Amino acid sequence: MPLPDLSLSLQFARFDEAAAHRAVLPRHKVARWIRHALALPAEITVRIVDAEEGQQLNRDYRHKDYATNVLTFDYTQEPLVTADLVLCAPVVAREAAEQNKSLEEHYAHLLVHGTLHAQGWDHETSEADANEMEAYETEIMQGLGFADPYAKD
């Protein structure tokens, strides 16, 4: 079965470690990870930001005053998924190290996670929804050749 079409804009804010993050996020890999999580064609912007921008967006839109790993701004879900995914590079790097994962693997997981949110998946509504979303993320990640992102070492 062919993967859905994707129009991707990949953006990097200017910050000290941007080159290292850009190196693990080539456009073809980002597109592949997102397309495997899509059920419909999509137009998605992915923006990699520093802690300051990540915190400001989380504070302004979610009223939580800290930088988080991924923010999903979903605009439409049918007939075309349109969304912005904002990933905070320092948070992603810290979490990858804490979880003994490569930076690439953690970015892949968060892009899959954010893409599912853009399509209406929500792990904060109930434990059953969280379990279903985690199981689907695991299936997608394993299909991409990565380990179960929720497995405990």
Rank of each mutant, 00 (worst) to 15 (best):
S9C: 08
L71A: 03
A67W: 08
E105I: 01
M141F: 05
K64Q: 15
N58I: 09
L38M: 12
A128C: 00
A135K: 13
A13W: 11
A42W: 05
E139Q: 15
L103I: 08
L10V: 03
D65Q: 10
D50M: 01
H21T: 06
Q77T: 14
Q77H: 15
Y75A: 10
E124R: 11
E52W: 09
K101W: 05
Y107L: 06
D148I: 01
P79A: 12
G114E: 00
A108P: 05
E53W: 04
L144K: 00
D84L: 13
V92H: 04
G120I: 07
H21R: 08
D148R: 05
F146S: 04
A42G: 08
A96C: 10
I48S: 03
P41A: 14
L110E: 12
N58W: 10
H28P: 04
R32M: 11
L85Q: 06
R27M: 09
L144T: 04
P79G: 10
V30C: 03
P4F: 09
H106Y: 11
Y66N: 13
L103T: 02
H117E: 08
E134C: 10
H123W: 11
L103M: 08
L57T: 10
Q56T: 14
G114R: 01
A18S: 11
I34R: 04
V70E: 08
F15R: 03
F15H: 09
D50L: 02
A37Y: 06
E134A: 12
S102Q: 03
Q56D: 13
E53V: 13
A89Y: 06
V86Y: 02
E95C: 00
C88F: 07
T45G: 10
A128F: 06
A42C: 10
L57C: 10
W121A: 14
E17K: 15
Y107C: 04
A89T: 04
V92G: 02
T138Y: 01
P149L: 09
E98S: 12
L3R: 15
D148T: 02
S9Y: 05
Q77F: 12
R62L: 14
T76M: 09
E105N: 09
H109M: 10
Y66D: 12
A23R: 15
T72P: 00
L103H: 07
L25V: 09
R59Y: 00
V91K: 03
D129F: 10
L103Q: 07
A147I: 05
A83R: 03
P4A: 08
A18M: 13
A42Y: 07
G120E: 09
E17Q: 15
K101H: 12
D5S: 15
A118L: 08
L80A: 01
W33A: 02
V92T: 12
V24D: 01
A51P: 01
Q11W: 10
P149F: 04
P90N: 07
Q56F: 07
E98P: 00
N131Y: 06
T82Q: 13
V86T: 14
I34H: 02
A83K: 04
F12I: 07
R32D: 11
Y136G: 00
A83L: 09
G114T: 06
V92D: 05
N58A: 14
S102N: 03
H109I: 01
K29T: 06
